[in-house]
Structure formats: structure tokens, C-alpha cells
Design a protein around this nucleic acid. Structure first.
Lengths: 280, 280
DNA sequence: CCGCCACTGGAATGAACATTCTATATTGAC
DNA sequence: GTCAATATAGAATGTTCATTCCAGTGGCGG
């Protein structure tokens, strides 16, 4: 009893655990060695399975798993399992742990620095996620579609507007004809009315969706004008009326999103379109 | 009872489920739609969480999750959860070979894919570089300076305009008074003339520098109005007349720059200012 | 205006689960 | 060879969880 409260601290991340296991694997009892080997060989099983199912496939008793976890300082098996799950999550976005370290520093730093670091990390994650989410084939189809349009109509309101306005600027430089919709009040619908089916539209809208943008995109689609869209959820009203649509989930910091990933996407699209045109 | 045993078969993999959800999202009741949106937007949460924890963060009842799963032919929530877990298992590998394609650039890939990858990589580099280049102390001083201004004048033309327009949008949401300069032709100087030394300005300009922006910033400075600026070189005309200035070098791809890093910086600044004000 | 039906929230239920406990087995020392 | 100490198996326990059930609500058609 006298020394049991002196619990050694459990490893905080998967790598630390892995190291600890390898260090101590020589001095571990037979069954625990067995568990150790199984854990390192089948980490996914540990992450998803229940104690019973893991015990079965590792040929040990469930209680052995618990004792194994306790040997490494965890309260029980569940605590250990968390590390295996966290590992799977982070596989996807390697910047998540960096973000966490940044957030931990928070205490000593000025608040503005914390916010800055937060946005930098969020931007990184967003860009990782967009590069995973965009299908090269779909992107190519969207480029083809927009490249053969006579005029590209850019539909965007509110938060999305800065993106379309930069696209309009770049299109101008690249000598691609485009029409920015949503700039000054009132005349939007008149401009859209001039679109023919030799044109195409690119719409951007993030939650909460501006109902106008959705309505305008739908209208274009119903007139046979192909619509490509960028949005943040498969549930966006834009998705259903678009010939091609892309999902970008901007990671947020404290509820605010920077448009970093969307900007990268928009530029890639813009330049790709111009390039495709230039080649005929 | 007569037809309830005729259960429709549940989707067998994540993509099938996703498709099914999107198909039926129109005819789903309110709460189930909410779950559907949450599920597609936060698949990782569903994979790892418990029904209770997921219900909490999706703002529904646990029972709703079960009903949702049953609507799609599963026995219960657990069956649906299996799909989300399977997806995560598979993604580990698919994410890795996505990275591999990113590296073996050019060879067999469509040009648009190369361009896309290029912009993603450029965005990453830009953000890395800005997080290294911005001095926390200078950032803090800039925030302090702008936070105590009555009105913040945002000066930006051309390529920088999308950034300032997003800042203006965010400031609006955050109830910080600001004035966007450079929007419609002609009245800029009149607006700036109204600025007092209780105000402040934030100017953005990248090479090739719009001479107007530089002139306007200089004019503000000469009237004792503090100017903070974001630019891409120490030789920028903005640097010399600014109380604080920051350098962001957007990595370019094929000569075109996305504004990813500038956007992250702008949002960090905007939110920091609002936060500082809120605290008094 | 009334009654029906689908939807929803919340509590009740029962199953699955991790953990603990105890009897038994194994190991190593003297 | 015997004893002590540690490890292990398997049953018992108490908790957490998904699921079910029921009452209340709102909307729609008669």
C-alpha cells in the first residue's frame, strides 16, 4: 500500500508508449510479452476492438489486457486504448499534434500569439484536408468544363466573396472572360439572365449558406448552364445542382475560419483553366 | 407487422452509405437531416465516439442516432458505426499513396493535378514561412495599436483587395468599426480625409505595388495616424511609413500566388483585435 | 375544428463491457 | 523438496452504453 499511490505517469502519445514497450519487453512476464507483441503488430485491432475481442484474438484473458495497461501506468485498458485511437486520427492530419503543442504553450504567451499560432495550424490542417479530399479526376473534369465556357460566372456572397473576387482578378490577368456576380446590389439577376448555355458558372458558398447563391446556382443549372461549386459540406444546397462540386472543410480556430485552403483551391482552378485554354 | 420484416439491406461500405445519405437527404425529417450533416462533416467523431458523446456534439438525442441508423437499414447505431471505423482503417493506406502521387509529380498525371498539387505545396510553404517570419512581439504591438483605434481603415488594391474585403466582413461580424478603402473608384481619398488620429490604418500591398496604396498609407502616416502593414518585401514603400509591418512571402506556383498565408495572417490579426477589445 | 400520424425528447431497460477479485498454477530460491 | 512470491485464468461485479419504449408535440388532411 505504501508505494502503490506513487503511480508512474502513463505515456502521453503512441510513440512514447511504443518506446516504453520496447524498453521493457525483456522484463515482462510471459503473457504480458504476448500482449505487447500483439499490440505492436495489430495496433488497429486495439484501437477498434473491445477488450474481449482483442483478448480472444491475442489468446489471452481480458484481465491480462488490463494488467498490461496498468503495468504501463494507465488506470485500465481503456486509457491505453485512447492512445491507439488518437494515433489513427492523427494519421489523417499530421498537424493536429502540432496544433496541440501550440495550444499547450498558450499559457505563457500573449493571447495574440496563441491566436496567430492557432490560425497557422488551422491553415495547415485545412490544406492537408483539401489535398486529400479533391479527386484528381473530378478536378480535371471541372477544369475542362469551365475552360470551354465563353464566360465564367462567379457566384459568391459574404464570406466566399473574397475568393471569387481574387479569381476575377486573376482571370482578368489571364485574359479569361468572367463575370463576378454578387458585387453590387440588384443587378445580379440581370447579369445572370444574359448567360447562355455556352457559358458556365462557378459558385462558392459556405455554411450558413446564402440563399441567394443557392437560388442563382439552381437557376443556372435549370437553364442548362453547367455549374461547378466549392462548398463545405455534402449537404450544401450547391452540391445537388452542380455538375461537379468540391468539399473543403476549413479548420477553424475559435470558430473563425480563414480561407487559406479555399484560396489555394481557387488559384489552382483558375490557373488550370487558363492553362487548358492556352493549349487549345 | 406484415411488412416490417422486409428490411432494406444496409449499405455495405462507407461510400455506399454516403451516397444513400445524399440521395435521401431531402426526404429526411429535421433531426435526421441534422445527424446526416454531422455524420458527413465529422466522420472521425462517429468512428470513435460513443452514441452519447456524438449525440451531445451533434445536438441531438442518442435515440435519434439509433433511429437514423435504422432509417438506413442498420439494426442499430453500432452497425452504422462499423462503416465509419472501416473507413478509417482503409484511409490510413489510401492517404499514404496519395502522398506518393504528390511526390512523383508530373509523369503520368493530368496537368490540372500537377497544378493543384503545386498550389497545395506552395500554400504549405507560405504558411510555414509566415509562422517563422512574424515576431510575436511585433504582432502583439500591432494588435494593441489597432485595437484602440476608433475606426480601422483598410487600404488595399488589386491582389490584396480580397484579403481586406474578408477582414471587413469579419470585422463587421465582430462589431469592430472599419472602413474598406479601395472599393469603388474615386471616393477613397474623401473617406481617408475623415480619419482622425484616434483611428488607425491597416494597409496591404504586394509587388508590383499599387502606387495609390502607398500614397494613401504615407498620407495617413503624415497626419499622425498609425499605419500597420502587410507586404512582401522590406523594400516595399509601405514598410517605411508604417509603425509596424509584416513580411509575408507567398510561395508561388508557376508565377501565381495564392493568398493562403496572407489570409491566415489577416484572420489572426482580425480576431486578435476583436479579442483585445472585448477584454477592454 | 378535430383526429390522425410522424417526429421528437427523455427516461427505462437490459446487454455488453472493463475491471476487480479469488483460487490456482508457475516460477525461483533456499 | 518445500516454501514464498508472482503470474494467470476465469468467474463476479459494477459501470457504461446502445437500445427500446412511451408520452408529448406539431403538422396535415378530413
Amino acid at each position: 500500500m505504501s508505494d502503490s499511490p506513487v503511480k508512474e505517469a502513463p505515456p502521453q502519445d503512441f510513440d512514447a508508449l511504443r518506446t516504453a514497450i520496447l524498453e521493457r519487453k525483456g522484463e515482462l512476464p510471459k503473457r504480458l510479452t504476448q500482449v505487447a507483441a500483439y499490440a505492436l503488430d495489430h495496433p488497429d485491432e486495439i484501437a477498434f476492438g473491445t477488450a474481449a475481442s482483442i483478448a480472444l484474438s491475442a489468446n489471452v484473458q481480458p484481465s491480462t489486457l488490463v494488467r498490461f495497461a496498468q503495468h504501463f501506468g494507465f488506470d485500465g485498458f481503456s486509457g491505453l486504448q485512447l492512445l491507439f485511437r488518437a494515433r489513427l486520427r492523427e494519421r489523417t492530419s499530421s498537424y493536429e499534434d502540432r496544433l496541440r503543442t501550440l495550444e499547450q504553450d498558450g499559457a505563457a504567451l500573449a493571447e495574440s500569439t496563441t491566436i496567430f499560432n492557432g490560425f497557422v495550424a488551422a491553415a495547415h490542417r485545412s490544406i492537408d484536408s483539401i489535398s486529400a479530399a479533391v479527386e484528381p479526376d473530378a478536378f480535371e473534369r471541372a477544369v475542362t468544363l469551365l475552360a470551354k465556357a465563353e464566360t465564367i460566372y462567379l457566384i459568391a456572397k459574404r464570406r466566399s466573396y473574397p475568393i471569387s473576387s481574387y479569381m476575377a482578378y486573376a482571370f482578368g490577368k489571364l485574359k479569361v472572360r468572367c463575370q463576378l456576380v454578387g458585387t453590387s446590389a440588384g443587378i445580379d439577376d440581370d447579369m445572370l439572365a444574359m448567360a447562355t448555355n455556352r457559358d458556365a458558372a462557378f459558385a462558392i458558398s459556405f455554411s450558413p449558406y446564402a440563399s441567394e447563391s443557392a437560388a442563382q446556382a439552381r437557376m443556372m443549372a435549370s437553364r442548362g448552364i453547367p455549374v461547378v461549386s466549392l462548398t463545405d459540406s455534402a449537404f450544401s444546397p450547391l452540391a445537388e445542382c452542380s455538375a461537379e462540386w468540391f468539399e473543403v472543410v476549413e479548420a477553424d480556430h475559435a470558430g473563425f475560419r480563414s480561407l487559406s485552403a479555399s484560396m489555394a483551391f481557387a488559384m489552382a482552378l483558375t490557373v488550370s483553366i487558363a492553362e487548358k485554354r492556352r493549349r487549345g
